[in-house]
Amino acid sequence: MTDFNYDKSLHLKKLLPKDAIDKIDNWIGKYPADRKRPPIIAALTIAQEHNGNYLTEDLMQAVAEYLDVPHIAVYEVATFYSMFHLNEVGEFVISVCNNISCSMRGANKVIEHLQNRLNIKVGETTGDGLFTIKTVECMAACGGAPMLEVNKVYYENLTEEKIDQIISDVTMLRSKKSKSTEVKK
């Protein structure tokens, strides 16, 4: 039996922390009140951030309900934009640009080095669930080619040493975090 007084916002509120919901509400406020769809991208981005970098069916459905839009509208958006992951990925997604300028300046070597260093192929995730390597198109930083992005931060003018540094920095960041949050093994 459908409960018609069911509060459609509950589902997402159960899945995301309060500050994430507040952020989504803030995005909603940017658009005309009679428009429900404009915050979809932002809401999915935030939801993904809080779900270990990927979206689940449940999350997408919850976002649709929260914004009061058809499920398919959210699903269409989630599958159209390349920054949304619909499968589980690492906590840190390393996006390496391999478009023209980066390729001209050694993107292939960057990828190779990363693959060797992390012992995975492009598209794969390390066993500890920490890293995924992904190749992406131009990210508007060709002046610093070759470049990559890890969770919101651009790293440019890459060298092997720099890449190693990035990986160890990120790993450190993570081990600090896991101590404080007691991640289950």
Binding site: P70, I72, Y75, T79, F80
Partner: peptide, 8 residues
């Protein structure tokens, strides 16, 4: 809206 075009 039930049907949609997903992906690109």
């Amino acid at each position: 809206r039930e049907m949609g075009a997903t992906g690109r």
